[in-house]
């Protein structure tokens, strides 16, 4: 096992640990996490596997295949994050609006 493999394995383990301790813990989320982490570990230890899969899918190199998958995953994550931010913004707006409506002032001085 060479240096980059050790580094990647450490990174993947840290990510998994962070997710489990700090973020979501539903069964489905954990199942997806275990699946992704296992795939990562397998591909890190046996990198030639990615080449084989890539060839079967008509992609030249395993690294290219991973790159394409990463673009897809990042785009998906970005959209999910955006929709979550939008939802939060709507909640925030609702709270501020309710507060403004509740504390509306009306002074009848000039009429």
């Amino acid at each position: 096992m060479n240096g980059i493999q050790l580094l990647l394995l450490f990174g993947v383990s840290a990510l998994g640990l962070y997710y489990v301790t700090r973020l979501r813990k539903t069964v489905l989320d954990l199942a997806i996490l275990i699946l992704l982490l296992s795939a990562s570990v397998i591909f890190i230890i046996w990198p030639d596997l990615t080449n084989e899969i890539a060839h079967k899918l008509g992609v030249g190199r395993g690294a290219d295949l991973l790159y394409y998958i990463c673009i897809l995953l990042f785009s998906f994550a970005l959209l999910k994050l955006f929709s979550r931010i939008r939802r939060l913004e709507q909640m925030f707006t609702k709270m501020i609006r309710e507060d403004a409506l509740k504390n509306a002032e009306h002074n009848a001085i000039d009429q």
């Binding site: 925030f92 501020i96 609006r97 507060d99 403004a100 409506l101 504390n103 509306a104 002032e105 009306h106 002074n107 009848a108 001085i109 000039d110 009429q111």
Partner: peptide, 12 residues
């Protein structure tokens, strides 16, 4: 405040 208006304020 010298005018008779309805005034609402967003905290943010």
């Amino acid at each position: 405040r010298e005018f008779n208006v309805h005034y609402l304020s967003h905290r943010q």
